[in-house]
Measured scan of single mutants.
Amino acid sequence: TEVDLHLGDITIKLKDVSEEIVKRAKELFKNGWSAEFVKKWIEEAVK
């Protein structure tokens, strides 16, 4: 499945990412993480 994760003005296309990771990524962004950091976190999380 593909998900578009909207973080501010940046959209990250996610492939084969669990709902849990998407939820967590949104929380991290809301908590002040930059979109770049969230993207890196996701990449690490799906390895």
Rank of each mutant, 00 (worst) to 15 (best):
E43W: 07
D4P: 05
E43C: 07
I42C: 04
W33Y: 13
K15V: 14
D16P: 02
I21S: 01
K30S: 13
G32H: 03
V3S: 08
V17P: 04
W41T: 00
K13A: 13
N31M: 13
G32V: 01
V17Y: 05
K13Y: 12
L28F: 10
E2D: 12
I42N: 00
K30C: 04
E27K: 06
K15L: 12
L7D: 02
E19Y: 10
V22A: 05
N31S: 12
W41V: 01
N31L: 14
L7M: 07
E20A: 11
H6I: 15
I10K: 05
L5T: 02
A25K: 00
W41D: 00
A25V: 04
L5I: 10
D9K: 07
G8E: 05
D9I: 07
A45V: 12
R24E: 11
I21Y: 04
L28W: 04
E2S: 12
K39V: 14
D16M: 04
F37K: 14
K15R: 12
F29C: 03
S18E: 06
T1K: 15
V22N: 01
S18P: 14
K26V: 15
R24V: 08
K39G: 07
W33K: 14
V46H: 07
L7F: 08
D9V: 07
L7P: 01
E19L: 11
L14N: 02
V38I: 14
E19R: 08
S34C: 07
L5N: 03
K47S: 14
K26T: 10
F29G: 01
L14W: 04
N31F: 09
K39T: 10
V46T: 11
K39N: 05
D16H: 08
S34L: 06
F37E: 15
E36I: 07
D4T: 15
L7A: 02
K47T: 11
D9C: 12
K23M: 12
H6W: 09
E27A: 06
I12N: 03
G32P: 01
V38D: 00
A45L: 08
I12Q: 03
T1A: 12
H6T: 15
K26W: 12
K15M: 11
D4H: 15
E27I: 08
V17T: 04
I21W: 04
T11A: 07
V46N: 06
H6C: 08
W33Q: 11
K47L: 14
N31V: 07
G8D: 06
T11E: 05
S34A: 09
A35F: 08
V17M: 04
W41S: 00
I12L: 13
K40T: 14
R24H: 14
L14F: 06
D4Q: 13
S18F: 05
T11N: 05
D9P: 10
E44G: 05
I10E: 13
E44Q: 07
I12C: 05
E27S: 05
E44A: 07
W33I: 07
D16K: 04
G32T: 02
E36A: 11
N31C: 13
K47E: 10
E43Q: 09
K23G: 07
T11S: 10
W33T: 06
L28S: 01
K30V: 13
E43R: 05
K47C: 06
V46F: 05
G32A: 02
E20Y: 10
K40C: 13
D9L: 10
V38F: 01
I42T: 02
V46Y: 05
F29W: 10
R24A: 12
E20W: 11
K47P: 04
V3I: 15
E2L: 11
E44Y: 07
T1W: 15
A25W: 02
W33L: 12
V3M: 12
K15N: 12
G8S: 03
T11G: 05
E36M: 09
W41N: 00
H6G: 04
L7C: 05
L7E: 02
I12K: 01
E19H: 10
E2I: 13
S34M: 06
K23A: 14
V22P: 01
T11H: 09
E19T: 10
L28I: 04
H6V: 15
N31Y: 08
I12W: 02
A35S: 09
K26C: 07
D9T: 10
K40D: 13
I42K: 00
T1Q: 14
E2A: 11
K30T: 13
G8L: 04
I12M: 06
D16S: 04
F29A: 03
F29Q: 01
E36P: 05
S34R: 04
V38T: 03
V3A: 09
K30Q: 15
E20Q: 09
A35Q: 04
L14I: 11
K23T: 14
S34P: 11
K47Y: 07
E19P: 13
D9H: 12
V22C: 01
E20D: 13
V22H: 04
W33A: 15
D4I: 15
A45D: 02
V3K: 07
K15C: 10
K15D: 08
T11I: 15
A25I: 04
S34G: 09
S18D: 13
K15T: 15
L5M: 06
V38S: 00
K47H: 12
S18N: 11
D16N: 12
E44C: 09
E27Y: 09
W33S: 10
T1D: 14
V38E: 00
I10L: 11
E44F: 07
T1I: 12
W33E: 08
H6D: 11
F37T: 13
L7I: 08
I10W: 06
V17H: 03
E20N: 09
D4G: 05
G32Q: 02
K30L: 14
F29T: 02
F29I: 07
K39P: 00
E27R: 05
V22Y: 06
V3E: 12
I42V: 09
R24M: 14
V17G: 02
K40G: 09
E19I: 08
F37S: 15
I10M: 13
I21N: 02
L5G: 02
K40M: 12
K40Y: 10
L28C: 03
L28G: 03
T1N: 15
F29E: 01
F37M: 15
F29H: 05
G32F: 03
D4Y: 15
A45Q: 15
K13L: 14
K47Q: 14
E36T: 08
H6K: 13
E20S: 10
E43P: 01
V3Y: 14
K23F: 11
E44L: 07
G8A: 04
W41P: 00
E2H: 11
T11Q: 05
I42W: 01
E43D: 09
K26S: 10
F29Y: 14
K13R: 10
V46L: 14
V38K: 00
L7G: 02
N31R: 09
A35L: 09
L28R: 02
